[in-house]
Simulated assay, not measured.
Amino acid sequence: MIYGYARVSTTDQSTEIQEKALRDAGAELVRSERVSATSRAGRTELETLLAFMRAGDILLVTRIDRLARSVHDLTSIVAELEKKGSFLRATEQPVDTSSPAGRAFLQMMGVFAELETAIRAERQAEGIAKAKRAGKYKGRPADMPMVERVFNLKAQGLGATEIARAAGITRAHVYRVLARQGGLLAA
């Protein structure tokens, strides 16, 4: 069985082109999701496919960066496939873990995908620092309903841990909200 996996990072992107390419390359079942590939966390469609894979099955992606952005995650996924006797192939790259050359190319692509992610993060940090120096970057706008909820819970006498649980945020975020808004911290 050939299972296709399509992934994009944001909700405004579409997986349609990947899905078509995977079906055209022989994928009998295609699963797709809109989630970052910087880790495996939250990638339920990928986990579902990996759970279904059996000996001789193929996990098909268009490009390796659709599957993983770190060598660690890529190695982990490939090891899981190998343990099951399954293989990984890519439609746009010469990756096929059923051959030694395909495995070598896969490892090189993983290193480049991780490098690309690191360079992108570095550029983004430089851009943010420059914008802050120019006074144009103020950070993410406050989520007012969440801020109001934090203050309401604080007014009810709840501590930071209870506020965090009730609001679905971290304790550190509770402290930041209270400090930023001047509602300092007896939490």
Score class of each variant (00 low, 15 high):
I2A: 06
G4Y: 06
V8K: 08
V8I: 08
V8R: 14
T11D: 08
E16W: 14
I17F: 12
K20E: 06
K20Q: 14
K20W: 05
L22V: 01
D24C: 05
A27G: 02
E28V: 12
E28P: 01
L29R: 14
R31I: 05
E33S: 01
R34L: 15
R34P: 11
A37S: 11
A41C: 07
R43D: 15
T44Q: 10
E45D: 12
L46M: 03
E47K: 13
L50G: 00
A51I: 01
A51L: 10
A55R: 12
G56M: 11
D57F: 06
I58M: 12
I58S: 02
L60H: 10
L60C: 03
V61A: 08
T62N: 04
R63L: 04
R63N: 08
L67N: 11
R69I: 05
S70G: 02
V71T: 15
H72Y: 06
D73A: 01
V78G: 00
V78N: 09
V78I: 02
A79W: 05
A79N: 07
E80M: 15
E80S: 07
G85K: 06
F87A: 14
R89V: 02
A90H: 10
A90L: 08
T91L: 06
T91D: 07
E92G: 09
Q93L: 08
P94N: 03
D96L: 15
D96E: 10
T97F: 07
S98F: 14
S98N: 04
S99T: 15
A101M: 13
A101R: 11
A101E: 08
G102A: 02
L106A: 04
G110V: 13
F112A: 12
E114S: 04
E116Y: 13
E116G: 13
E122V: 11
E122C: 10
R123T: 00
E126L: 15
G127T: 03
I128W: 06
K130T: 07
K130G: 15
A131V: 01
K132R: 12
K136I: 03
K136D: 08
K136P: 07
K138L: 04
G139E: 11
R140E: 09
P141K: 02
A142F: 15
M144V: 03
P145H: 02
V147I: 14
V150F: 04
K154T: 07
K154G: 01
Q156I: 11
Q156W: 08
G157W: 13
L158W: 06
L158G: 10
L158M: 12
A160V: 05
A160G: 05
I163E: 00
A164E: 10
A167Q: 07
A167F: 04
I169E: 09
A172N: 11
V177K: 03
A179T: 09
A179H: 13
L184V: 07
L185N: 14
A186G: 15
A186V: 02
